[in-house]
Design a protein around this nucleic acid. Structure first.
Length: 517
RNA sequence: GGCCCUGUCGUCUAGUGGCCUAGGACACAGCCCUUUCAAGGCUGCGACACGGGUUCGAAUCCCGUCAGGGUCACCA
């Protein structure tokens, strides 16, 4: 395969949709695999709906994911402009040219007449296939009428022909041209319709591969007619299946994704400073958008891997496929025909796999912003404090799957105030005999020559043996009294990271609390 | 409704006529490891939508049915 020119054409909606990214990714992968250009073309012809500031989140999303475009907004390119709102004249010219060549004609019927035709067809249960009376006008006359009366323009669909598409994913798809109505390509006011504008642009931009969502498959028939009329080289088409909601046959939509914000995720977002109202309303806090995953500290590499594997497979067993491997092996042939459900659980797992292999320095870098937002990290922390955080991250190990997980594993150690989970406290500290053991062991801890994990473990086990109780008793009590919770890194790690003074101080506070209880 | 697309474990998938009593992964359950939670190891649960053909043989080919989705706009 020669160089590929593929494009993704989002509308500036203010957010980057997860399903859209998946389609864009397939385009991008195809380009990376075969060489060529990935083009971003902004479909902003709907001026009421599109606001300029609504583009930025989309660009940000792609950049965060590492999906860079060779031509498009902010980078330019040889076949620009890359905003459809700036290409309006071209569509009009193209439509007029087709009228002059007798391949398109003015729509002579009023909206009411059109409506009546359609209703009559429906009533007699015949499919409505529009063939306008303007079809037979001589080109000169047709052009004159278009200009003088500001009439919409319709494309002539050829009669008695089969329209054939060799789709790279679907295979051969055929339509009977006689079952297709003549579509409007230009409104009365001179603005083009999507089906036409996209063809004009794909031709002008010399797109070789149109890789897009399956919902456009039916549109392809009239687009094929438009390409033919324009005399433009036909690109190859590949219609990728849509992404569905988790465990559902419904297309992934922003509106229905709120229910996938679990109480845990919600709590996390709230500790990052978002209110419940914001979580319910903001696009970037919605699981159908890319920004949501950035907000929660997913590694972009993980998201890309997950999305790339959604509907495409390398072989019968590969799940973690680094981007280089994906780009060098991607092929449209291995894209599935059927829709795929988005699975947040699997994405979480993939993200964790990537986090596992991330160097500690990078984890540090990624976690700090979250700690800052949670209010436990300042602008100029001391080297000692940084070292402490590093140790927290190392101790957390594989438990850290997302950067935001540092909130769960780091906060209890790093925060100056211990937040006690009462249930855990009652279960592990305020228990018969436990405060006594704890108090006794604190004295031993105070006398320890150092606070290394090995030293601590040895001391604790010796102490338990000496007093004749199960070390687990003290281990749990120590964990809860120093961090307030029952889960987390190894208790010796926690104590050691805290340091002798802080650890003992925390235990004394807990002891006082237990005494009062 | 017409036309078009799709249909393998709950989910993502492997499978292109015999390697399939259908493989892997996520999730789930149990066990092991273990101070908790993760991680890891082992085991389990669990699918070819249905009905006809073709064939010595079908998840794979054909037809039909059913189900889901898309599209039929002077929306994108």
């Amino acid at each position: 395969m020669g160089p590929v020119r593929a494009r993704f054409a989002p509308s500036p909606t203010g957010y980057l949709h997860i399903g859209g990214v998946r389609t864009a990714l397939f385009n991008w992968l195809l380009v990376k695999r075969h060489g060529g250009q990935f083009i971003l073309r902004i479909d902003d012809t709907d001026s009421e709906r599109n606001k300029p500031e609504a583009l930025q989140p989309i660009l940000d999303g792609f950049r965060w994911l590492g999906i860079h475009w060779d031509e498009g907004p902010e980078v330019g390119g040889p076949v620009g402009p890359y905003f459809q709102s700036q290409r309006l004249e071209g569509y009009k010219e193209a439509a007029y040219r087709l009228v002059r060549e007798g391949k398109a004609y003015p729509c002579l019927l009023s909206p009411d007449e059109l409506k009546a035709e359609r209703e009559a067809a429906e009533k007699s249960k015949r499919p409505y296939i529009h063939r306008g009376p303007g079809r037979t006008l001589a080109p000169d006359e047709a052009m004159k009428r278009v200009l003088e009366n500001k009439l919409p323009v319709r494309l002539k669909v050829p009669e008695g022909k089969k329209i054939v598409l060799e789709d790279l994913i679907r295979g051969r798809v055929e339509w009977d041209a006689d079952l297709l109505g003549d579509p409007v390509i230009l409104r009365g006011d001179g603005r083009a319709l999507y089906n036409f504008a996209t063809v004009v642009d794909d031709a002008a931009m010399r797109i070789t591969h149109v890789v897009r969502a399956a919902e456009h498959l039916s549109n392809t028939a009239v687009q094929l007619v438009a390409f033919e009329a324009l005399g433009a080289a036909l690109p190859r088409f590949a219609h990728v299946p849509v992404v569905n909601e988790p465990n559902s046959k419904k297309k992934l939509s922003k509106r229905d994704m709120a229910k996938f914000v679990t109480p845990d995720i919600k709590a996390k977002l709230m500790s990052l400073g978002h209110t419940a109202e914001q979580i319910a309303a903001r696009d970037d806090l919605n699981p159908a958008t890319v920004a949501f995953y950035k907000e929660l500290g997913y590694l972009p590499e993980g998201l890309v891997n997950y999305l790339g594997r959604l509907g495409w497979s390398l072989d019968d067993h590969s799940e973690i496929i680094p981007i280089d491997q994906m780009t060098s092996n991607f092929s449209l042939e291995r894209v599935n025909d059927s829709p795929a459900s988005f699975d947040p659980d699997k994405l979480y797992w993939v993200a964790g796999e990537y986090m596992k292999s991330l160097p500690v320095e990078k984890k540090l870098e990624g976690c700090i912003p979250f700690l800052k937002r949670a209010g436990v990290w300042g602008e100029n922390e001391s080297p000692a404090r940084l070292e402490q955080l590093r140790r927290v991250i190392v101790a957390a190990g594989d438990r850290l799957k997302l950067f935001s997980d540092i909130l769960q594993y780091g906060l209890p150690i790093l925060a100056s105030q211990v937040t006690i989970d009462e249930k855990s406290f009652a279960k592990r500290v305020t228990k018969e005999g436990v405060p006594g053991h704890l108090a006794a062991f604190v004295e031993k801890m105070a006398a320890l020559p150092d606070f290394e994990t090995g030293t601590l473990e040895e001391a604790l086990k010796a102490h338990a043996t000496e007093k004749g109780f199960n070390p687990a008793l003290l281990i749990h009590a120590l964990r809860v009294s120093t961090t307030g919770i029952e889960v987390g890194a190894g208790v010796y790690d926690i104590l050691s990271i805290l340091g002798k003074d802080e650890a003992i101080q925390r235990i004394r506070v807990a002891l006082a609390k237990a005494g009062q209880a």
